[in-house]
């Protein structure tokens, strides 16, 4: 347990301003890989980073639920509709060998890139994130929108939970005809939107009073450069080198 905590700490201490760009670059370079001979590298890199991060396997599996359905759809499409020799037949459908290889490659690439994304998000501490994102030259207006959205999802989500509880206490049972269900969900959705709108007006007045001046440029952003840790720099250089190596290998392999 303590080794897991120590590993998590290493990743959390990896400076956000170095970690996010380098892992994002790695994800992009992995998305660039199409050659089958390089495909084995992707799960190796993803597994190494995942194990190094100390993230729970259950968290990884829960995050993979949504993309797995997407992958199933795409894989089926590739196996059925690719050109080339048939591998086998199921009723009227011919399963194509080339399609099967493509499907396996796609699954490997998608799952590896998603794993890196999960590592990136789940090892990034939220404290001071807005300043760090602005240091990464992301327009301050977008950072502010992102940070405030995250905060208000919790607030409005809590409102929604209360509405659901109140509905249950009044004896509402889900189901029934479509028109009956529409009569329930439409006012619920509209009420949430009205609350959001009113809340946004209050937030606007508060921001206006404080003299907020968010911009698409960085001229108003104060940047404190505290330097980077040595371990953070080493991780950064390793990840960037790995990304460069993948791209070079993909270009030069033939």
């Amino acid at each position: 347990m303590s080794s897991v905590n120590a590993r998590m700490k290493t990743f959390e201490n990896w400076d956000t301003t170095l970690k996010i760009p380098s892992l994002f670059l790695l994800m992009m370079s992995m998305a660039f890989i199409r050659d089958q001979r390089l495909m084995f590298l992707l799960p190796c890199i993803a597994a190494a980073l995942f194990i190094g991060s100390g993230i729970r396997v259950s968290l990884l599996l829960s995050r993979l639920r949504a993309p797995v359905f997407f992958l199933l759809f795409v894989s089926t499409f590739l196996i059925l509709f690719s050109e080339g020799e048939s591998l086998a037949r199921i009723g009227p459908f011919a399963l194509k060998a080339k399609g099967a290889i493509l499907a396996v490659n796609t699954c490997i690439r998608v799952l590896s890139v998603i794993t890196i994304g999960i590592v990136m998000v789940n090892t990034t501490p939220l404290s001071g994130l807005s300043v760090k994102l602005k240091r990464m030259l992301i327009p301050s207006i977008l950072v502010d929108i992102g940070i405030m959205t995250g905060r208000y999802i919790m607030v409005i989500g809590e409102d929604y939970r209360k509405m659901k509880n109140a509905r249950k206490l009044r004896g509402y049972a889900p189901g029934g005809s479509i028109s009956k269900r529409f009569r329930v969900i439409v006012p619920a959705a509209a009420t949430l939107l009205i609350r959001g709108f009113q809340q946004s007006e209050m937030v606007f007045h508060a921001m206006h009073m404080r003299g907020y001046g968010g911009d698409l440029t960085h001229k108003n952003v104060r940047i404190d450069d505290n330097g980077y840790s040595t371990s953070g720099m080493i991780m950064f250089l390793l990840t960037v080198s790995l990304s460069a190596m993948l791209v070079i290998l993909e270009i030069t392999i033939d």
Binding site: M148, T149, G150, Y152, G196, V203, H208, Y212, G214
Partner: peptide, 16 residues
Amino acid sequence: ARVVSRASVMAAAFFV
């Protein structure tokens, strides 16, 4: 301020 407050709070509302 209006753009940021409207976009962020309404994005959260739509998300919910």
